[in-house]
């Protein structure tokens, strides 16, 4: 009898394969260094299940680096570097960022952006989207989200009661645009929802990361072994690492000194 019950529960467990609704959205990310011309474009892929989401790069569409001016855009080839993982049950967001040539894992909260919802609507890919705006780590973003889809968004943009289908930084530096949406039902056991960062040993909070970034930036700016190559750590990439008013990082004045 006992065995029968065990077998029956086992069978019912295998027969009742739970089915999850999955949203897969493809985004086109664009970067405009001079705010006007596209310097970089990539196709990104968002995989959102009911409890988490993964955001990663599919392929680079366009990359126009300003080699004449001596700038080289460094994009590490390791595929793991580009997965941005969000765990909605724990409100945790994991991503990687560079300081110099080294990668650090950053752990954020998902709901860190205080959006202001505007009274403007637009249709994107057949979904009615509402405009929301907020500043986030040094840039002001204007995003369009739809309540007809589960909450989420590209990159670190999230925290709205719907899916963000289009986002632009107001200064034109970066933009995200959904190009393909697929909603399907897939069997739970075929989807990999584990956190790819579980095995990492050290996580940095945003404040910790910024502190480390500034330390390194100051060190790198002082490092001048005599060659003509200078490592520049910008204060602001997509996110602001060093505040504008910060006087500890005196790269500009140091550079002037070395040239004069």
């Amino acid at each position: 009898m006992k065995y029968l019950i065990i077998i029956l529960t086992f069978i019912s467990f295998t027969i009742n394969k739970p089915i999850l609704t999955v949203a897969e959205i493809e985004y086109l990310e664009s970067k405009r260094e001079d705010s006007i011309n596209i310097s970089w474009q990539g196709e990104y892929y968002l995989f959102r299940t009911i409890s988490n989401s993964k955001y990663s790069k599919k392929k680079v569409v366009r990359s126009i680096s300003n080699v004449e001016q001596g700038d080289i855009d460094f994009n590490p080839k390791n595929s793991k570097t580009e997965i941005l993982y969000k765990d909605y049950t724990k409100n945790e967001m994991y991503s990687k960022d560079l300081i110099g040539f080294k990668l650090f894992t950053i752990k954020d909260s998902i709901n860190i952006i205080n959006w202001e919802i505007k009274n403007k609507k637009k249709e994107i890919l057949g979904y009615t989207c509402t405009l929301a705006e907020s500043s986030f780590r040094g840039r002001i973003y204007q995003v369009w989200f739809t309540t007809q889809l589960i909450a989420g968004g590209p990159w670190k943009l999230d925290g709205l009661p719907g899916m963000i289908l289009k986002a632009d930084s107001k200064d034109g530096y970066c933009s995200f645009e959904a190009t393909k949406i697929k909603i399907s039902k897939q069997e739970d056991n075929t989807i990999d929802t584990t956190n790819p960062y579980l095995q990492e040993k050290k996580f940095y909070s945003w404040t910790e990361f910024k502190k480390k970034y500034k330390e390194k930036a100051i060190k790198m700016s002082k490092y001048n072994p005599g060659s003509s190559i200078i490592m520049v750590a910008p204060r602001l990439r997509r996110e602001r690492y060093i505040e504008k008013k910060d006087t500890d990082y005196l790269f500009e004045s140091d550079l002037k000194k070395s040239i004069d």
Binding site: N111, W115, K121, A151, P161
Partner: peptide, 20 residues
Amino acid sequence: SANIIIKELSNSDHIIQYKV
């Protein structure tokens, strides 16, 4: 995971507050 949207009764198209 759920979303809470607050709208004013007079203007049901516009979201005034929300919380995830």
